[in-house]
C-alpha cells in the first residue's frame, strides 16, 4: 500500500487561506488504511479548519467528500456536480490521487493535505514500514524476499557496506542492516550461493521518465479500433 502522513495543520491552513469554500476530498483506499486521508480523517480536518476559521471570524466553509480511490478516474466522476460549488479541493489522497483529481478538474485549484511517504506494509495498527521503492528491477528473488533497495539507505546490491554493527545500520542503531537480514535469511534457507555472483550496475534508464505500464489486452483493444 501507499503510505502518507498528513501535513502540519498550520501549513494546510495557510494553503487554504485564499479560498472561501473548500472541499476536503478523502480517499477510501491506502490513505484510509494508514489513518491519514480516509473519510474519518477528512471529516476531522474539515472540522478543524472550520473551527479555526470561526475563531478568526472568517466567513468560510469546509465540506467533506470521500471517493473510493482518487487514483482512478472512474471514482472521480461522482464529484463532478459537487466541485462546481467550491473554490478549491483539498485532497488527502497520495500524490498520485491528488494529481488525478487535479487533472480531472482542471478549473479548480487542488491543494495537497498529505505528504506521501512510501510504499509499505501495515505492521500493526498505527505502524507502517517502507518496503519498496518501485525500482522496476526487482531483486527479491535473489535477496531472500528482503529489499536492499528500500531497506539499505545506500541501496547496496553486492553486500553490506562496512558500517554494520550488531546487525544494525550505520545510519541508525535502531534500524536493522538490510544486508544482515538478507544474509540471515539466506543462510537459514541454505541459499547463500544467491549472493556469490557480482551484481552489475543497475539500469536507471527506465526510471528517468514517468512510469507507464500497458496491459497486452489494452493494446489489442485499441489496435483493433484503429
Amino acid at each position: 500500500m501507499i503510505v502518507a502522513q498528513r501535513k502540519d495543520f498550520e501549513q494546510i491552513k495557510a494553503a487554504a487561506a485564499d479560498f472561501r469554500k473548500v472541499l476536503v476530498v478523502g480517499c477510501g483506499t491506502c490513505v484510509a488504511v494508514c489513518l491519514t486521508g480516509g473519510e474519518k480523517e477528512a471529516g476531522i480536518l474539515a472540522a478543524q479548519l472550520d473551527l479555526a476559521s470561526q475563531i478568526q471570524g472568517e466567513d468560510k466553509s469546509f465540506a467533506v467528500a470521500c471517493v473510493e480511490r482518487q487514483c482512478d478516474l472512474e471514482f472521480l466522476d461522482e464529484l463532478a456536480e459537487t466541485v462546481l460549488d467550491y473554490d478549491a479541493l483539498l485532497s488527502l489522497a497520495c500524490g498520485a490521487g491528488i494529481q488525478l483529481l487535479a487533472e480531472r478538474y482542471p478549473r479548480v485549484p487542488v491543494l495537497a493535505g498529505v505528504d506521501t511517504t512510501f510504499i509499505g506494509i501495515n505492521r500493526d495498527v498505527g505502524l507502517w514500514e517502507e518496503r519498496c521503492r518501485a525500482c522496476r528491477a526487482c531483486v527479491l528473488t535473489t535477496t531472500g524476499g528482503i529489499c536492499p533497495v528500500s531497506l539499505c539507505p545506500k541501496g547496496m546490491l553486492n553486500g553490506p557496506c562496512g558500517g554494520t554493527r550488531q546487525g544494525k545500520c550505520e545510519t541508525d542503531p535502531e534500524r536493522d542492516c538490510a544486508w544482515s537480514l538478507i544474509y540471515e535469511r539466506l543462510a537459514g534457507l541454505d541459499r547463500l550461493e544467491n549472493l556469490s555472483a557480482i551484481v552489475a550496475p543497475r539500469d536507471h534508464g527506465a526510471r528517468s521518465q514517468p512510469g507507464r505500464q500497458v496491459h497486452p489486452a489494452y493494446l489489442r483493444r485499441y489496435s483493433a479500433h484503429e
Binding site: N158, P160, T164, G167, S180
Partner: peptide, 15 residues
C-alpha cells in the same frame, strides 16, 4: 576497504 569489526562478519566477507 573492509571493516573487520563488521557484525555479522560473514556478509562482509562475501562482499
Amino acid at each position: 576497504v573492509v571493516a573487520a569489526q563488521s557484525d555479522p562478519l560473514p556478509p562482509q566477507l562475501i562482499k
